[in-house]
Write a protein that binds this DNA or RNA. Sequence first.
DNA 1: GGTTCTCACTTGTATTACACTTGTCTATGA
DNA 2: TCATAGACAAGTGTAATACAAGTGAGAACC
Lengths: 243, 243
Amino acid sequence: MRTIRYHEIAANLRSRVHSGELVSGRLLPSEAELSKKYKVSRVTVRRALELLRDEGIVDARQGFGWFVLGGTVSQSLATLGTIEDQMTASGVRSERLVIEYAFEKANKQVAKVLGVDQVLRVRRINTADGEPFALVTVWCPAELGRSLSRQDVEQSSFHELLDRKLKSATQTITADAASADEARLLEIPLSAPVLRCERVTKDAGGQAVLLAQHVFPGHKTNFVVELSSTTKSIAPSGLRLVD
Amino acid sequence: MRTIRYHEIAANLRSRVHSGELVSGRLLPSEAELSKKYKVSRVTVRRALELLRDEGIVDARQGFGWFVLGGTVSQSLATLGTIEDQMTASGVRSERLVIEYAFEKANKQVAKVLGVDQVLRVRRINTADGEPFALVTVWCPAELGRSLSRQDVEQSSFHELLDRKLKSATQTITADAASADEARLLEIPLSAPVLRCERVTKDAGGQAVLLAQHVFPGHKTNFVVELSSTTKSIAPSGLRLVD
DNA sequence: GGTTCTCACTTGTATTACACTTGTCTATGA
DNA sequence: TCATAGACAAGTGTAATACAAGTGAGAACC
């Protein structure tokens, strides 16, 4: 009976992953090693691995290796990432209005964070029930941004568009006075207190892929952090509208 | 099994920090020494340290060295509760100055949160290197407060004094303009932007036992939320001084 | 005593080099 | 169509090295 080798190998690897032998985050043996072990060519091993990649079980980075994906990740980040989702979830009619969309040279600070020179900068206003409640500026490496049309950005969040790449995020929150630009766009007085959140999102390789700055009018918004000693998982945190 | 050296080293250092071998505020060995000790290049040591810096565990000053930041701590609540601890940990001389200490009738809002009528209200100013950086007001049911003298409150944090009872906390962060009182006490201009954090701490039974309001000058402070899928350790979140 | 200078030591940053990995392509059989 | 073999491009982790720049402490000076 003739069977297809790479399906066999894929099945074998799949069971090894599911059995827990290959834990999430762990590196798989290199293609060369697997090829030697199963006594097949590297191409065949690759076919098997690509099959698993399509299933979302493993992923690879060039020059690094194949590794097992953990299931929880994208979800925990998803809850984090989409501030506008939280709005719609709480019954507020939320809209996105893209006011700027430009490929340009990154300024020094942005260049340092993202590690690239050319970036796509998108500026949006988010409205809740017609009133602006957030001014969002997102910087993204131009290379990644090319595949995103202005319409894409208008309709979906960056976290949706770049979904599978995102891995971790650091968010800093601080209070500041609204700049002239911000005051005008958010329809608040000049120098009114605003909540300024800056988030750096990184991919699996630790490379920063997204720099986002959210500016919220202080009197309208609240950042909530829930901390429970029982749950070790990342505390769910989110933005909340205040009345 | 293939592992990546700098992840190994980072894990090693992380555990040494958590075990208390490397106390908070302490200087780590220099990169050169670590490089010799682990028999890897300085670059590799750096990458490990930078990993830890991203996690908020350590930080470095050029020409000075790497030092442990604060509250590694197995109790996730401890890291949360003791903002002043984080200050001392990062090498800042932090002092507590109690300016008000009174048993009184709770106002409507406080009464609703704590579910009691009589409360102990304590107001403190926290200083960092002599300058005020936080104005803290704590409300606590009078019943619990009776066992706490003014001196207790001055010397220790509420989280230390009520330690074992605390179980979970909800923290809301918002931007606001400084009131006259706050501006005077924090030595900032009237209506300057401040970060206002309100935390409700509950005990094991779900009963609210502490209501705390922290007010930070916006230009001096930063709230950092780290969300990482790779680190199993407690997501370090905390307040960070900015320069 | 107080100020400035110097020097050892630290981190920050940039190179080059090398081994090893995945990504991709072509050619050859079964 | 499937598998093999080989070759090359490109990315990654580590090493070794060099230099810039900040820090702290003590020496030297006024």
